[in-house]
């Protein structure tokens, strides 16, 4: 664990691998809820980092964190959300070719894994989900689409993402869902918050209807 300063009031906790970052994130949220964490405005997880943004007492927090023992992985178990997906994306064939398998097998691999929201970004409610494992990596499209429909389920790198609203995008589209990812009348507005566990459930009966 390395502590890196980001400007005058922020600290980046830099970790060796995603599992550690998830455990640190969960532990930071737990301590904040308990009221035992030095006040921090934002706790922003990354793939292998947790950013503590807007820290009232930076040296104090640094000293505090150095005394923590590495949080245990077991402490981390988020809520499970099931997302029905119609696997009919325009790039499903491309992904099948990249992985050297049939489209049906891509669906089995993707829906068979338990995914987890590692962090958010790109757009409000856009979750970067991990879970596919090492061999299942996909490059971004060379030519991003100027418009990707809301609800598109897509792959890039080793992540799965779902476009919360229609936007330009360079991820490979494998399917679609009618689930609402971002709803300002909901608390929180994002369905998929960091730490959420996710299962994709194949739905041939018009998930996107």
């Amino acid at each position: 664990m390395r502590l890196l300063r980001a400007g005058q009031d922020s600290l980046l906790i830099d970790l060796d691998e995603p599992g550690e970052a998830q455990a640190w994130h969960a532990e930071l949220l737990r301590r904040r809820a308990e009221g035992t964490l030095t006040p921090v405005r934002e706790i922003v997880p990354g793939e292998r980092t947790v950013l503590l943004y807007g820290v009232h007492d930076l040296p104090g927090l640094e000293a505090e964190l150095r005394h923590w023992s590495a949080p245990s992985r077991a402490a981390d178990s988020g809520e499970l959300v099931e997302i029905p997906v119609r696997y009919d994306g325009a790039d499903l064939g491309v992904v099948a070719e990249l992985w050297g398998m049939s489209e049906d097998e891509v669906v089995r691999v993707h829906s068979g894994a338990e995914h987890r929201v590692a962090f958010s970004g790109f757009a409000p409610g856009f979750a970067y989900m991990t879970g596919l494992g090492e061999p299942y990596v996909v490059p971004r499209r060379a030519e991003p689409r100027t418009s990707v429909p809301a609800g598109s389920v897509a792959l890039a790198g080793h992540y799965t993402g779902i476009y919360p609203r229609s936007s330009p995008g360079g991820w490979q589209l494998i399917g679609s869902t009618s689930v609402t990812l971002w709803d300002l009348d909901r608390q929180p507005a994002a369905l998929l918050v960091p730490g959420t566990r996710v299962r994709f459930v194949p739905d041939s009966e018009g998930a996107a209807a």
């Binding site: 980001a6 400007g7 922020s10 934002e42 990354g46 292998r48 980092t49 950013l51 943004y53 962090f119």
Partner: peptide, 10 residues
């Protein structure tokens, strides 16, 4: 770089 949190002024 694996994606990480960004601050204003970065």
């Amino acid at each position: 770089l694996p994606s990480e949190g960004m601050v204003l002024g970065a």
